[in-house]
Amino acid sequence: MGSFKEATAIEAVGDGEFTADLDAQWSVGGKLHGGYLLAVVARAAAELGEHPHLTAISGAFPTAPQPGPATVRVEFLQSSRTLTQLRARLTQNGTPCVEALVTQGVLSEDDPWWTNTQPPEMPAEQDSFRFPAQAPGNDFEIPILDVVETRVDPAAIGWATGQPARQGAISTWQRLADGSDWDPLSLLVALDPVPPVSYELGAPGWAPTLQFSAYIRRLPAPGPVRVRMSANDVTSNRMDEAAFAWDSSGRMAAQATQFAAVRLPRG
């Protein structure tokens, strides 16, 4: 099992181009995880950014890449006193796989000036259900769950016994299995948690990300993050998912919205 830093490693080629070796461990049902892919892209963009921290990223996923060699091309757009904006594209064998706009800035651990978010009420981490790589009711493996320890609020796992609550929300505790603390890049993985909300709605199965936007609000405190993901509408095999992540201090560290495909049960 490699670390997140190793799995997202890049090598500069020159003129804004980088190579990466996409790690099969960070996948769901044989498909590389969307948050992981954005983290690879964001790591490359940071090499050209004039500010140290990822603060925002918005990506589209036209083609699912395979584990193995890939190329990231980064274009500098503009820089000001407080931010740098860039465009990045991940390709494999000449095919575009991820297109992203990236904003770099400077983050702190400060409390918010104002906030309207509160971490979800849920059992303690040790009292929550450890979601396994071979999950009940799944006919495929989820290798990323061996590198991201995910514990689900027991109130949201009724689907495993054929009794989904259908509340449209799932809360989880998450840790990096290699013992690393969360940082602005790895939070992109936490904001795209497994299982997706569709499980809780009674539609288990792969829910591929089509578009994803994330905002990193502050440097997270050491320890696990608590993530609440909810959906508002599921129509025509498409769903929205909004995620918020709170660090161990109870402060919101990051948030995201994504548009995903979902395989709805017949009838």
Rank of each mutant, 00 (worst) to 15 (best):
S186A: 05
S180F: 07
P119H: 08
C97V: 00
R166Q: 15
G94Q: 01
E149T: 06
V152A: 08
T150M: 01
A156L: 04
P184K: 05
Q163F: 10
E125P: 05
I144V: 15
T150P: 09
V189L: 09
A133G: 13
E109G: 12
V102H: 01
P123N: 03
L185E: 00
F129I: 07
S186P: 05
F131C: 08
A165R: 11
F140T: 00
G168A: 08
W182V: 01
G94C: 09
I142P: 02
P184Q: 03
D127T: 08
T150V: 05
P123H: 03
L107T: 01
Q174N: 00
W159F: 10
D111L: 13
C97Y: 03
L145D: 05
E99K: 15
N138P: 09
P119E: 10
A124E: 02
L145A: 09
L176G: 07
G158D: 08
D153N: 06
W114G: 12
S180H: 03
W182H: 06
I144S: 12
T150R: 03
A160Q: 12
G179S: 06
I157L: 02
A160T: 15
G105N: 04
L176Q: 02
Q167A: 13
G94Y: 02
F131H: 13
A100N: 08
D110K: 14
T161N: 13
D110Y: 10
E121A: 13
A155F: 01
V102A: 09
A169K: 14
E149S: 04
P112L: 13
E125T: 03
A169E: 15
D181R: 03
T172A: 11
P143I: 03
D183E: 03
P123G: 00
E109H: 13
P96T: 00
P184E: 06
V102F: 07
P184D: 11
G168K: 06
G94T: 02
P136Y: 00
Q163N: 15
V102G: 04
D178A: 05
L107D: 01
M122A: 03
S171D: 08
A177H: 11
A169D: 11
Q104H: 12
L101N: 14
W173F: 04
P154A: 05
T95M: 14
L145T: 09
P120W: 00
F129E: 05
V148M: 12
P184T: 02
P143T: 07
E141W: 15
I157P: 01
N138Q: 15
Q104G: 10
D146E: 15
T117S: 14
E121C: 10
W159A: 04
V189K: 02
V148I: 10
A124H: 04
T161G: 15
W173N: 04
T172F: 01
P136N: 00
V147W: 12
L107Y: 06
Q126Y: 01
T115P: 08
P96S: 07
S128Q: 00
